[in-house]
Simulated assay, not measured.
Amino acid sequence: MIVLGLTGSIGMGKSTTARMFAEAGVPVHDSDEAVHRLYAGEAAPLVEAAFPGVMDAGVVDRARLGERVLGNADALKRLEAIIHPLVRADADAFLAKHRNAGESVAVLDIPLLFETGGRARVDKVVVVTAPPEIQRQRVLARPGMTDEKLAAILARQVPDAEKRRQADFVIDTGQGLAAARAEVEAIIAELTSKPAC
């Protein structure tokens, strides 16, 4: 089974592209969705112990947690030390399940793939990109997003140009949904028509 890592900076259209892989029949593990599940489950007491007051009715309140960690490198490191191993275990279980089911390709949707050493866990990398003005427009349209928050997030991410340089495949979502879907289908066709090198 070929493990395809899907990544891209904030606002590049990664979630939409992940849905396109899923709609084409490729199993997709969404790291963000796994974090949501973990914040409502086994990670909640661990995060609350590290950051008292961020839990509400047994679930981590992401807004409260964000106030504590965004822009604070030490706090972010503490949070990542809790969350990353749990997300990785979740992804490993997902891969084992689909490998046993005989799937030929599975996608790991990892927002910080390059930043967290995720390159070693995948066979090929797809980077989703878009022109900077489209990225900025998409991100600033999100509720509660500000220029300052966007700057703090981008400061933690490997620059888009560097991600594209390291990618096996690049999908430009600035060209529209139909073009992105065609790219997804072309990647799937390439990966399933010959053995991975």
Results as ranks from 00 to 15, higher is better:
Leu4His: 03
Leu6Ser: 04
Leu6Asn: 01
Gly8Phe: 01
Gly8Trp: 03
Ser9Val: 10
Ile10Lys: 13
Gly11Asn: 05
Met12Thr: 14
Met12Asn: 09
Gly13Ser: 08
Lys14Ser: 06
Ser15Trp: 04
Thr16Glu: 13
Thr17Trp: 03
Arg19Ile: 00
Met20Ser: 08
Val26Phe: 01
Val26Ala: 00
Val26Ser: 03
His29Val: 00
Asp30Ala: 12
Asp32Val: 02
Glu33Gln: 10
Ala34Leu: 13
Ala34Phe: 08
Val35Thr: 14
Val35Asp: 06
Leu38Ser: 10
Leu38Arg: 11
Gly41Lys: 01
Glu42Cys: 01
Glu42Pro: 08
Glu42Tyr: 02
Glu42Asp: 05
Ala43Gly: 09
Ala44Ser: 14
Leu46Cys: 07
Leu46Ile: 09
Ala49Thr: 05
Ala49Arg: 15
Phe51Met: 07
Phe51Tyr: 05
Asp56Pro: 13
Ala57Ser: 10
Val60Met: 05
Asp61Arg: 14
Ala63Arg: 15
Ala63Gln: 14
Gly66Val: 03
Leu70Phe: 15
Ala73Cys: 02
Ala73Ile: 07
Leu76Val: 04
Leu79Pro: 10
Glu80Phe: 07
Glu80Cys: 14
Ala81Thr: 13
Pro85Asn: 09
Arg88Glu: 13
Ala91Val: 15
Phe94His: 11
Ala96Leu: 09
Lys97Leu: 06
Asn100Trp: 10
Ala101Pro: 12
Ala101Thr: 10
Glu103Lys: 12
Glu103Trp: 04
Ser104Arg: 14
Ser104Ala: 15
Val105Thr: 00
Ala106Ile: 01
Leu108Cys: 01
Ile110Phe: 13
Pro111Ser: 01
Glu115Asn: 11
Gly118Ala: 10
Arg121Glu: 14
Val122Ile: 04
Lys124Leu: 04
Val125Lys: 03
Val125Trp: 02
Pro132Asp: 02
Gln135Met: 09
Leu140Asn: 11
Ala141Thr: 03
Arg142Thr: 00
Glu148Trp: 13
Glu148Leu: 11
Leu150Arg: 02
Ala151Tyr: 10
Ala151Cys: 08
Ala152Phe: 02
Ile153His: 07
Leu154Thr: 04
Ala155Asn: 06
Arg156Asp: 00
Gln157Ser: 06
Val158Pro: 02
Val158Phe: 04
Ala161Pro: 06
Lys163Gln: 08
Gln166Thr: 06
Gln166Asn: 10
Ala167Thr: 02
Ile171Met: 06
Asp172Ser: 13
Thr173Cys: 09
Gly174Thr: 05
Gly174Ala: 06
Gly174Arg: 07
Gln175Lys: 15
Leu177Val: 13
Ala179Lys: 13
Ala182Asn: 13
Glu183Val: 00
Glu183Asp: 15
Val184Lys: 01
Glu185Pro: 13
Ile187Asn: 06
Ile188Pro: 07
Ile188Cys: 05
Glu190Ile: 04
Thr192Glu: 03
